[in-house]
Every structure is written in structure tokens, then in C-alpha cells.
Design a protein around this nucleic acid. Sequence first.
DNA 1: AATTTGTGCCGTATGTTTACGACAATAGAA
DNA 2: TTCTATTGTCGTAAACATACGGCACAAATT
Lengths: 109, 109
Amino acid sequence: MISNKSKLFPADEQQVAHFAKALSHPARIAILRYLAEAKVCITGDITDAIPLGRTTVLQHLQVLKDSKLITGDIDGKKVCYCINTVVYDDMRKLFTTLFSDIDTINNCC
Amino acid sequence: MISNKSKLFPADEQQVAHFAKALSHPARIAILRYLAEAKVCITGDITDAIPLGRTTVLQHLQVLKDSKLITGDIDGKKVCYCINTVVYDDMRKLFTTLFSDIDTINNCC
DNA sequence: AATTTGTGCCGTATGTTTACGACAATAGAA
DNA sequence: TTCTATTGTCGTAAACATACGGCACAAATT
């Protein structure tokens, strides 16, 4: 997903970049918001909530699934999409750490 | 930078996605870290700190500049890259708001 | 003066993302 | 049974991202 040269960077920077990529499209933010609010997780409901074609939404769901931020467990014949709270909290911490590392009280040149 | 269909989404989701995209490569995280720590901002120093070709680093600097997270002001003949603290804090707030909106105490289906 | 070094800019090859249409299969309604 | 709706998968076109080499020019070094 992330290119070969990315491996040259520290693991934490790779991880933040990886999650940032997952959040880098408004549709995926909207999907996460939807999954957090709604208790349903069926494809049809999700695609109805997002102003994009069904296939495109499925693709965004796949990206989120690849990032582990959501699970897509097979519930009988359908797939049930849910936020993976463990991974989600990890991400939160990674961002928080990054933000406090980059302390912007710098007066540059 | 972000495709045409993205305009269909709420402004705040577009903004978070926009910043997430800027952070979606480890080189760009590394650049921000470097700019926050080092007080220098000359291209040569930055490219030395990043394990990628000079041209590629310049390209990542351009992406960060497009996102407004850094400025690239011309200081005589050279370009001086610095973190834009105002925009950076805006981003921080956007992420914080998103993270608290998406409250993961959901037990899905 | 000649050479090296550092910088900005241009092109460009390769790979990834985004967006969607078309297809097959399955489940439920007529 | 037949029809419709809903899903998952596959293919694909267009746009974008990543990574770098090469060129030109200015400043610093020899």
C-alpha cells in the first residue's frame, strides 16, 4: 500500500503515515462517522449514507479494512462492518504523540 | 489535489482528509519533525535528514506547502521552509474534534 | 578564471487511488 | 416459479503520487 522506500523511515512514522492515508479521503471519514453513530453495519445502509457509487464505497470500506481501522466480518452471507476500537485507539495515541512531539513553539529562521 | 467528488462531503470532513493526506507519507512526517526540532530550514539540511533523493524531498516539501502546513518563503535566493503554526494548530483541533466525535464505545452488531 | 557545490525547475517512468459499469449469485416478493 | 433487489467480485479508465535523473544558474572554493 505504501511504497517501498517508506521502509527507510522509523516505524512510528510509518504507522502514523499509514493511518493518515486511511483518513485521507472524506468518504472514509464519513464512513467512520457513520459506523460510530449507526449501530447498523450493512453495506446498503452505508452506501446510502455516502454520496458515491456503491462500488466506490465498497472500495473505501476495503481501504479502511486494510488499515485495520474497521473489521468486515462475515455475518452469514452479508459482511458486517464495524470500527475496530483497539486499532482506533492505537491510532489516536499515535496522532496525539506526534502532535506533542511536533511542538510548534518554534520561531524558525 | 483531492478529487472532484470530494466536494460532495461536509467541509470539516474535507479539511481533515486534506490534512491527513499531507501526513500520509513517512517522509512528510519526518520533514515536519525535522522542521520542529531544527531551527534551520534550508533545503540542503532537510534533504540530508531524509533518506530519499533531493528531488523527491523537494516534492514532499511542495505537498506540505500546498497543504499550508509549512511555508516556503523566499529568503533572498534560497527558500526557507518553516512550520505554519496557525495552520498546524487548526489541524490539531480538527483531528481532536474528529477523534472525540468518533466515540468508539460502540458495540456494533 | 575554472571548478565544484547547492539550488530550483523540468520531464518522466512506474505504481496507486478513485470512480464506476458490468456480471453472477443469492435471498426474498409476486 | 419467476422477478426484483441486494450484494460481492472483476475489470478498467482517468487522475494522482512517488521517485529520480538531468539541466541551468548562482555562489562559494580552489
